[in-house]
Design a protein around this nucleic acid. Structure first.
Lengths: 210, 210, 210, 210
DNA sequence: TATGAATGAGTGTTCATTCAT
DNA sequence: TATGAATGAACACTCATTCAT
């Protein structure tokens, strides 16, 4: 059920996707600066010149990766749909989901993060379009819990950033330590539970509370 | 008050430093791959050829930055000297120190981290010479506290990495959000206290313990 | 009359040739070390980058020149086909042919010889693949003549090298003396005859034989 | 018996010599283009800057080598003093002397020859100041022998160049064939005798004369 | 006069981009 | 529209030459 026109558009869209995937793969493997257009053309099985029919420049590829894969945030959906669960369940689901995602997409994620840090323009866009909404939801969640006295009165901005940062930083350390580090042998489920406990109860024994 | 010979050596050392500083500055600004030797020569106010009188190659500059600024760890000293304090004091001192250091050296720190991630050789060296010792000390600390029942029994490897990762991740998010983010207006002291509380007590009100 | 594919290959081959010719011309004029890639690109009327689409490096150009022009030896054919002639005819044909070739290709020949001397790898290859076979045939020829008592019993190895060397050395001196030297005004035919006589009869008058 | 002034001049002359020797050694080893001034300064045990107090440029070093070692011709002396000997003795002495000299100074000689070929200016100078006189003497010698009917009537210009060229070419081939070639195992004395015989009597048996 | 660090033009080489087919 | 050869600006690096000490 598609006119000639629509068919053509579908094929065009497929091509764009194919190129973008190849670019992301190569960028993740070698880094943006070290990756070359011939590399990408090889990975995609598409001629160098053709890439330029779909994307204006190497940098355009990078930006398109961001707008396709990063600046659209299915993650926010997750946050929205789970706000009504009880805290332990919500947190451990959230954490497990993010850990799964992180471990699965490590190279890509850290390549993207790396570029975000390098490029001020991307940084601002990422800050506004990704971090902003996500941290916003997290803050709203924390705020409601503090308001209902489930959580202690804390500096909400900061705790939101510490929680988000802890996920990213934990993955980062796991990645640097590599295959031989202790992270690889941890079970994802157990990790999520333990982390949830840590976030909720901290480190102290109950009786030591100050 | 030094011989001719000593004077010359001092000047040579100064030059090396001057070049290394310029390289670090440029690398931090543009990333290793995007930085050029003329960039560095301009930043240092030194001719291109002179750089090569002091360093063998661009990569040698990178490695020298690491061995000068990264693979020497005054930080470990800090950890060793504070193990005997009470926990709240120790943690908040540690956190404050790391936050201070992180905010002061953000661009440099994340450039270095970025390269560590890109370069497998650096990654392994960093893992062994920096992360290993630091996480080791943190684990020893946690272990002793758990043994003396001050801390709950937790997965020590994981908590060590979550704590370390939280610091890094928090700084990372602050950096991405930039000057206009909420981090910049937080007081360092307050931050440290709040974070310490979070680590020790978690989020729950005492009476809500599950 | 060729498929698309064949046409492309022909053009590619032409380009390779065009570049190689330009390289040989420039190398012959300035020497390998003093020649630059821009020089060659100018001579060929081709962009610098294009040269690198056909040859891996400057050195690859040099080696390709050798394998194209030097390490293929039509000369050996000549030697083989003339072994049955009478000596005077054979020698004067051989000498004339080599003189013709030498005078025609002087600059190129001495550039190549010069590089052979400079580069140990080329030297060995040249020794094995060019000098070896050529001197071998010459020795075989001398040996048969000595065996049949047409020639005096001589040190065959040495005489072969003296004969070959005399051709090269003669050309070399002609080249150094240049256009104004006496060589340029000699007739090639006469030269060959005279040289043949010299080789066969030496300098002495018949009656002066010692 | 030298004033202060003379002493200084002697030291200066020594320095010039020391530098020139080092330059010749390095040039012969690596070729003019590949040799660097620091190489020469190392070989001479003299600072880079000092070299420039004695010679204007790298090229000046090359030209000075020529005017010191090449464009002064002790060889001509030899030719002059032996004109009265009998031919066989004269020729074999001459040949032996040149072979000795050639084998002893191969690298230097062929480096110089190589530069002569590369550089038109040097070429002309060499032609006029070295080749000219030497070939002139040889021609004079041949001429007198032909006049006195000891030698056959030959094209004197050509034979002179063939004789000179044969020496150079023979050495050249020996050099290219290297240590493993047959030249290295020949006795110098025997070589000279054989070569003399060849020059005087040619290759034919007496009775085969055509 | 002797030194060797500083210089920067010049080298071989790469690669994003263009364009004729 | 797809192709990949052609392009040349830009890169890392070298080295003859200068000059302050």
């Amino acid at each position: 059920m598609g006119t000639r026109q629509e068919k053509k558009e579908r094929i065009t869209e497929q091509r764009r996707q194919q190129i973008l995937d190849a670019a992301l793969a190569v960028f993740s493997r070698k880094g943006y600066g070290e990756a070359t257009i011939p590399d990408i053309s090889l990975e995609a099985g598409i001629a160098v010149g053709t890439i330029y029919n779909y994307y204006e420049s190497k940098r355009d590829l990078l930006l398109s990766i961001f707008s396709t894969y990063v600046f659209t945030q299915p993650f926010v959906k997750l946050l929205e749909h789970t706000l009504e669960m009880d805290d332990r369940t919500f947190l451990s689901l959230l954490i497990e989901d993010r850990l799964d995602f992180g471990f699965e997409n490590m190279d890509r994620f850290f390549f993207l993060l790396s570029e975000v840090q390098r490029d001020p323009e991307l940084r601002q866009q990422y800050s506004q379009e990704v971090l902003g909404p996500v941290l916003g939801l997290l803050e709203k969640y924390l705020e409601s819990r503090v308001a209902s006295r489930v959580f202690r009165p804390v500096n909400i901005s900061m705790v939101a950033r510490v929680l988000g940062g802890a996920m990213i930083g934990f993955l980062l350390l796991c990645r640097i330590e590599g295959e031989s580090g202790p992270c690889r042998s941890m079970f994802r489920k157990e990790l999520a539970t333990e982390l949830t406990d840590f976030v909720l109860k901290g480190l102290l024994q109950s009786e030591d509370r100050t």
